[in-house]
Structures are given as C-alpha cells and as structure tokens.
C-alpha cells in the first residue's frame, strides 16, 4: 500500500463545537437522467437515490445525497472499507451504469474532504460566512445543502441534531479548516 496522506491531520474541540476530518471514505459521484438508473442503484446499494431536492437517503453502510435533478453523491459510513472493496464497488457501479450508457459514475473520494462538525454552535459558526438559511435544514434529519462557506463551495449533510458532515474540495480544505478554526474563537 501507499501512504495515505489526508490534508487535515488534527481534531479540534471548542466549547460547544467539535470538528474533525473523517477519512478515508469512499465517495462516488453519480449522474443520470435515465429511468432504469434508480432501480440499478437500488440493487447495488440497497438504497434508492432521493428524488426530492435537498434530501438524502441512507442505510448503515452508505449515504446517498441529492445534488441535482440528475446528480447524486454516495459516501460510505465505513472508514475501514478496504481499498479492494472500494475498487469493487466503483467498478460494479461503473460497469452497470456508465458502461451501459445509463449515466456516469465517477470516483470523487479524494476530490472531496469530509469534515464532521458537531455541537450546538455549528450553525452559528457556519452562518458567519454562509448565506444559507438553516432554519429548515437544522430541523430535518438527512437534509442536504450545496452552498458556500467563506466563498468556498461546500456540500452539507445533516446527520443528526447539531451534527453535520461538510464536504469541501481537497485543494480548498486546509484554507476552510483554518477559517473554521479561526471562527470557532468567536462563537
């Protein structure tokens, strides 16, 4: 194996806020506007891609986030998933969807960095630079929002009360991490 080198190597705890990078996690981007797509995904993952905007579906193993009317993001809950298992899943999806012209399957495990934020100040912190209205989001488990935090694109996935996963592009992740930590001083 090669050395795994994630961009963020620490966990931070503040009053009412914990932040930590959760890696390695397999993440796969799905695109499709074909009818059979949903069933195929259902067969492979045992969950259906959500049709409703800003929502997600999931089971113990995987989360499936709505990103657009023809785009979804799969991410695994399992940090221990072996590289072979990851490759097998990707190949299986690719062969069933992409190869058969049912859509597109793209590995984005290292494109996105997943940061878990939890604590009752989470939304105060994000709202320092995020114009998104969290009033509905925070009351609905599984909500998904794509928006900007400190002018950086992010995907937010509401896991539980005051607990969310934030996805940020790897190249921006250290910058956003520094900003989050700087902001945490003032909540």
């Amino acid at each position: 194996m090669l050395n795994f080198n994630s961009p963020i190597k620490e966990e931070k705890k503040y009053n009412d806020l914990n932040i930590i990078e959760v890696e390695p996690i397999i993440k796969i981007n799905l695109r499709s506007n074909k009818r059979e797509f949903s069933t195929k995904i259902g067969k492979i993952l045992s969950i259906l891609p959500p049709n409703e905007a800003n929502t997600s579906s999931g089971n113990e193993k995987f989360n499936l986030l709505w990103l657009s009317s023809d785009e979804w993001l799969i991410y695994s809950n399992d940090k221990e998933m072996s590289l072979d298992d990851q490759t097998n899943l990707e190949d299986k999806l690719f062969n069933e969807i992409s190869k058969l012209n049912q859509g597109a399957v793209t590995n984005v495990s290292d494109h996105w960095v997943m940061i878990n934020l939890n604590g009752n100040k989470v939304y105060d912190l994000l709202s320092k630079s995020c114009p998104y209205n969290f009033n509905d989001f925070k009351n609905k488990k599984g909500s998904v929002a794509q928006t900007i935090v400190n002018r950086i694109d992010v995907i937010l996935h509401h896991k539980e009360d005051d607990n969310l996963n934030l996805f940020v592009r790897r190249s921006f992740s250290e910058d956003l991490w520094l900003w989050i930590n700087d902001s945490a001083r003032f909540i």
């Binding site: 695109r31 859509g103 793209t106 590995n107 984005v108 495990s109 996105w112």
Partner: peptide, 11 residues
C-alpha cells in the same frame, strides 16, 4: 447524452 464531473482535486 453527456455527463461532466470535475475531478481536478480527485487526481
């Protein structure tokens, strides 16, 4: 029928 996905940070 074409899908574009950015992978700039993936690779």
């Amino acid at each position: 029928n074409v899908y574009l996905t950015t992978v700039t940070d993936q690779y």
